[in-house]
C-alpha cells in the first residue's frame, strides 16, 4: 500500500459534527427503508421538458417569432395597403414603378400594386403548405402504422410504395393539372395525395423497430389491444420524427408549388401564390430586381425557419436530451 493511505487524513471538522461527541457520532442510525428507495429525480413532465429544451435554442425561437410576425403581417398588410387585390386593374402608365410612398413594393409589368400581390400570395402559399403538411401527416401516420404493424400486408404495401415513388411526382402533378384543372383545392389534394408516402414509409420503419420491443410484448401479455399498443406505446416515440417531417414538408410544399407554378402547372393565374409571382418575375428581374427580391425573400425566410424550428423541436422532443 502506498503511504498516502497510511496517514489518516485530518479533514477539517464540519459544522454539523462540531458539537457532537464521539459517542454520538459513532452511534447506529435508525434505518429507513423509504429513504433508501427514494431516488434523486423529481417531477418530470414530458412536454414541459420539450418546451424548456426548445426555448434554449435561441436561433430557432427567433426565427419562429419572425415567421409568426410574417404570417400575421401578411393578413394585416393586405388590409393596410393602398390597394385591394380584388380591385387591381392593369394600368400601363404606372408599370415598373420602383417602391415609393404610393406603391410600397412598386408595381409589376401591368402597373398593378406589388405590395398587395406579395402579401396575398404569401397567405395563399402558407395556407396551402399548412393544409398539405397536416394532410400528409394524418394520412402518413395512419397508413404507416397499419403498414408497419401488420406483417401480412407489408410485402404488398412495399411493392405499391416502390411503384408509386419510382414515378417522379412532377408527372402526376402535370397529369392532374392538365386533366382535372388548376385550383387551390386540386393543388392541395394532389400534393397531399403524393406527399404522404415518404412519411408513411418512415412511420412504418419506426413502427417495425418498436413493434417487437420487450415492452410491447409485455403489453400483449396483458391483453392490450393492437390499436392501444400503437397509440400508447409506439406513437409517442415517433413524435420527434413526425414533427420534423411536418416542419420540413412546409418549405417543401412551398418550393414544389413554386416549381409547378413556374412551369405553369400550379395554381391558376388568378390565385397569386409566391410561385406565380416568381414565375411572373422571371422576364423582368434583371432590369427590375425588386420584382424577384420580395417574394424570394419571403420564400427563403419560410424555408429557413421551418428547417431550423423543425430540427430544434425534434431535438427537444427526444427524451434522450431531457434531464
Amino acid at each position: 500500500m502506498s503511504k498516502s493511505k497510511d496517514t489518516v487524513e485530518k479533514t477539517e471538522v464540519l459544522d454539523e459534527t462540531a458539537n457532537m461527541s464521539d459517542e454520538e457520532l459513532f452511534s447506529f442510525v435508525e434505518y429507513h427503508h423509504d429513504d433508501a428507495e427514494r431516488t434523486g429525480y423529481s417531477n418530470y413532465s414530458y412536454w414541459k421538458s420539450v418546451f424548456k429544451n426548445f426555448l434554449k435554442k435561441k436561433t430557432a425561437v427567433v426565427m419562429l417569432c419572425v415567421f409568426l410576425c410574417l404570417f400575421v403581417f401578411s393578413f394585416v398588410a393586405t388590409a393596410i395597403g393602398n390597394y385591394d387585390y380584388d380591385k387591381l386593374i392593369p394600368d400601363n402608365e404606372h408599370s415598373f414603378e420602383s417602391p415609393n410612398s404610393e406603391y410600397w413594393f412598386g408595381t409589376d409589368n401591368l402597373g398593378r400594386d406589388y405590395w398587395c400581390q406579395v402579401w396575398y400570395a404569401s397567405q395563399t402559399s402558407i395556407k396551402l403548405a399548412a393544409i398539405v403538411a397536416l394532410g400528409e401527416c394524418v394520412l402518413g401516420i395512419i397508413i404507416g402504422c397499419i403498414w408497419g404493424y401488420t406483417r401480412k400486408i407489408d410485402a404488398l404495401f412495399t411493392e405499391l410504395y416502390n411503384i408509386m415513388t419510382n414515378v417522379p411526382n412532377i408527372i402526376y402533378m402535370t397529369l392532374i393539372a392538365l386533366m382535372i384543372g388548376q385550383s387551390f383545392l386540386i393543388m392541395a389534394i394532389s400534393m397531399t395525395a403524393f406527399g404522404w408516402m415518404p412519411m408513411a414509409r418512415q412511420v412504418r420503419n419506426l413502427v417495425m423497430m418498436y413493434r417487437d420491443r420487450e415492452y410491447n410484448l409485455a403489453s400483449r401479455c396483458l391483453g392490450t389491444k393492437q390499436s392501444r399498443i400503437l397509440v400508447k406505446n409506439i406513437l409517442p416515440f415517433l413524435v420527434s420524427v413526425i414533427i420534423l417531417r411536418m416542419a420540413l414538408s412546409i418549405p417543401r410544399t412551398i418550393s414544389l408549388e413554386s416549381t409547378l407554378s413556374y412551369l405553369g402547372l400550379g395554381l391558376d393565374v388568378n390565385t397569386p401564390s409566391l410561385g406565380i409571382l416568381l414565375r411572373n418575375s422571371r422576364a423582368f428581374f434583371l432590369d427590375f430586381p425588386y420584382i424577384l427580391i420580395f417574394p424570394a425573400a419571403i420564400v427563403s425566410i419560410i424555408t429557413v425557419t421551418f428547417y431550423l424550428v423543425g430540427n430544434a423541436f425534434a431535438d427537444a422532443c427526444d427524451p434522450k436530451n431531457h434531464v
Binding site: K5, L25, Y31, D35
Partner: peptide, 24 residues
C-alpha cells in the same frame, strides 16, 4: 450510508479514511 442498515451517524457527515486491517 443511506443504504447501510447499520450506518453510524458519522457516516453521514464525514468521509471515512482507509483503515488497516492487515498489511494487505
Amino acid at each position: 450510508a443511506p443504504r447501510n442498515k447499520k450506518a453510524l451517524k458519522i457516516d453521514f457527515y464525514k468521509e471515512p479514511p482507509f483503515f488497516k486491517v492487515s498489511d494487505t
